[in-house]
Simulated scan of single mutants.
Amino acid sequence: MLDRTMRAVLSGPLDAMAAALDRPGVTPDRLTLAGLALALASAGAAAAQWWAAAIVLWLVSRVADGLDGTLARRRRARGDGGDSEAGGFLDITADFIAYGTGVLGVAWGATAGYGVAWWPFLLVLVVYYVNGTAFLAFSSIAERTGRRIDDGRSLSFLGRIAEGTETIVVHALWLILPFWSGGIAVVWSVFVGISAVQRVVVGYRLLR
């Protein structure tokens, strides 16, 4: 829901950071992998109940995730881009790993430290699975049938109420408030579930 707005707001700062990082040794793929490593470290810190470290690592990892595409577009604009399709594949795979392990890490830490139930986090993982399936299946079929949605990203993205911005905020919120993370997870699973249903319905209609 907020991705388009946040991309417009953050485009200037991300462009500036990408320009500063635009050096031979820095590539979009390396930024993607750095973001993934930081996200995995955040999940580990959450599991260990190092909440302050977990939130810092999570936010820095998402900055790296935003910078990889910005740097790739900057280099393509001057004719110096690499394989954008491979980079897009790596990026979405890293995102799914980051989100999934993020849920697992906070669940582990919150259940051990605050007695929070496991089932809300399992519910989040289920709706992530359904939502991701609908998203990726639509993108693949839309590409093959010439119905691609081109908004500058590597995949055809059906935007709904739960997008990347909302996911980053919610994952940050339950790292800040781990004692309330179970309730946050229940509410979040409802929003993601609604988005999944919307994507299935809209995607089916667009592909008919």
Rank of each mutant, 00 (worst) to 15 (best):
135 F>A: 13
96 F>D: 11
173 L>I: 04
81 G>E: 04
186 V>M: 12
125 L>H: 03
41 A>W: 00
25 G>S: 08
20 A>Y: 03
118 W>E: 03
157 F>M: 00
178 P>W: 03
110 A>D: 06
137 A>W: 10
59 L>F: 07
158 L>W: 01
199 R>G: 08
62 R>V: 06
144 R>W: 02
206 L>V: 03
188 W>C: 12
61 S>W: 02
119 W>L: 06
150 D>V: 15
124 V>R: 03
176 I>Y: 09
119 W>K: 01
138 F>L: 09
197 V>T: 14
205 R>N: 11
88 G>D: 02
20 A>H: 06
20 A>M: 10
80 D>H: 07
192 V>P: 04
165 T>A: 12
26 V>G: 11
99 Y>M: 08
4 R>L: 07
60 V>M: 13
64 A>W: 07
185 A>Y: 11
80 D>N: 09
53 A>G: 00
174 W>C: 02
31 L>G: 06
172 A>E: 00
123 L>T: 06
175 L>S: 00
162 A>S: 05
36 L>E: 02
7 R>N: 13
64 A>C: 15
134 A>I: 01
26 V>C: 11
124 V>A: 10
19 A>R: 15
3 D>H: 10
176 I>H: 01
130 V>D: 07
169 V>L: 14
183 G>A: 11
187 V>K: 11
163 E>W: 05
6 M>I: 13
87 G>I: 00
165 T>D: 00
108 W>I: 05
199 R>C: 04
187 V>S: 15
140 S>T: 13
162 A>E: 00
1 M>C: 05
171 H>V: 10
176 I>E: 01
131 N>K: 12
62 R>W: 02
73 R>L: 07
24 P>M: 14
14 L>R: 11
164 G>Q: 01
188 W>G: 07
3 D>C: 07
48 A>R: 12
130 V>F: 15
16 A>M: 11
93 T>L: 13
1 M>N: 10
